[in-house]
């Protein structure tokens, strides 16, 4: 008998959660039907993002923060994203090493994900995994991701509260400023505060935050907290800062706005990728695309005209919306 994966997910079955996440990872056609049925049951969980350089202590903080949340009676889902090697396609996902204390807790579900080359984008893949954990009843969902590339900044946009982890001695602040990562933080966490230079880094970040014109214009001044994840120090302060941000979002209605924006982006992106996939599949049949490319190369066809014709023929939208000049 076939398992009813949706019903099992809604009951919180780890086996069903993990199987459907695999389908998502493999672009298995069974995934989208499940997601459709799961969707009405999402939107309950609060989503936390933890980002920072490799080795900054994200997994250690995730472990300790999860224990804290569990002590408050909350259930936790964790999605830990690590890079796929562009050379081999493989990945080492080592986040569980730091999560030994929560590994056996039935109120915690940990899933590692490699960045791969997801068809609908990494953010989409992560967001789908988060939705499954949400539907499965997890109260808080933690996304751990390395904050360097654009992709990672993108993932973090699925989070309601973003914690940026910085450590002394990495020149992290300068790098983060360059990558535009600094601006996405709702809470700054100075981890490895047992190391020399932590106080100075803390002062520097506090100063930058106070000086940043864009950050200053916001209603939420991002707090800076110091932690020693390995010693479980500062975790209460970190949890309090997150809770304060959550309360701010909820009371100011910003949470609704944020999620509204996210829903809009996500929906458009889903349509974008699915259209792209469908048109590509159609054009790839019988070497149609190869023929078109040859025609274009020999200037018998024109890519601009072709694009316009494709849209006109295959989308039933008002002419004014598919005109090349429409804005």
């Amino acid at each position: 008998m076939d398992t009813d994966y949706v019903a099992e997910i809604l009951k919180g079955s780890p086996r069903a959660i993990s199987r459907v996440i695999s389908w998502l990872e493999n672009d298995d056609p069974r995934a989208s039907g499940c997601m459709e049925k799961i969707y009405p049951h999402t939107g309950r969980a609060y989503i936390l993002g933890i980002t920072g350089s490799p080795g900054s202590g994200k997994s250690s903080l995730t472990d300790k923060l999860t224990q804290k949340l569990r002590s408050q009676g909350l259930t936790v889902g964790i999605v830990a994203v690590d890079p796929t090697s562009p050379f081999t396609g493989g990945a080492i996902l080592g986040d569980r090493v730091r999560m030994g204390d929560i590994a056996m807790d039935p109120g915690v579900f940990i899933r590692s994900m490699a960045t791969r080359g997801y068809l609908g984008g990494l953010a989409q893949a992560t967001s789908n995994a988060v939705k499954i954990l949400d539907a499965a009843g997890k109260d808080i969902i933690l996304i751990e991701t390395v904050g360097v590339g654009q992709d990672e900044v993108d993932i973090i946009r699925i989070a309601d509260t973003v914690c940026l982890v910085l450590v002394p001695g990495l020149g992290d602040v300068i790098q983060s400023m360059k990558a535009g990562v600094m601006e996405i933080a709702d809470v700054y966490v100075i981890n490895k505060s047992d190391r020399p230079g932590a106080d100075q880094l803390c002062a520097e970040v506090t100063h930058r935050v106070a000086q940043d014109v864009e950050i200053r214009a916001r209603q939420w001044p991002p707090p800076v907290v110091q932690t020693v994840a390995t010693e479980n120090e500062g975790i209460d302060e970190m949890a309090d800062a997150i809770q304060a941000h959550r309360s701010y979002l909820e009371q100011s209605n910003r949470l609704i706005d944020k999620r509204r924006e996210r829903t809009r982006d996500e929906t458009l992106q889903m349509i974008h990728y699915e259209l792209f996939r469908a048109i590509k599949a159609y054009l790839s049949r019988d070497h149609r695309m190869d023929q078109l490319v040859s025609d274009i190369m020999e200037r018998r066809e024109n890519p601009y005209r072709l694009m316009h014709r494709m849209l006109k023929n295959y989308l039933r939208l008002p002419e004014s919306d598919i005109s090349l000049n429409a804005d």
């Binding site: 996440i21 081999t88 493989g90 996902l93 080592g94 569980r96 090493v97 030994g100 056996m104 940990i110």
Partner: peptide, 27 residues
């Protein structure tokens, strides 16, 4: 990993229960 696999490394002092919980969650 170099052979193209996704390797979930779980670390030292794993009990069979921990290993199997990881296997379930990671599929």
């Amino acid at each position: 990993a170099e052979a193209g696999m996704e390797v979930i490394y779980t670390g030292l002092r794993q009990t069979p229960e921990m290993i199997v919980a990881a296997a379930v969650q990671e599929d």
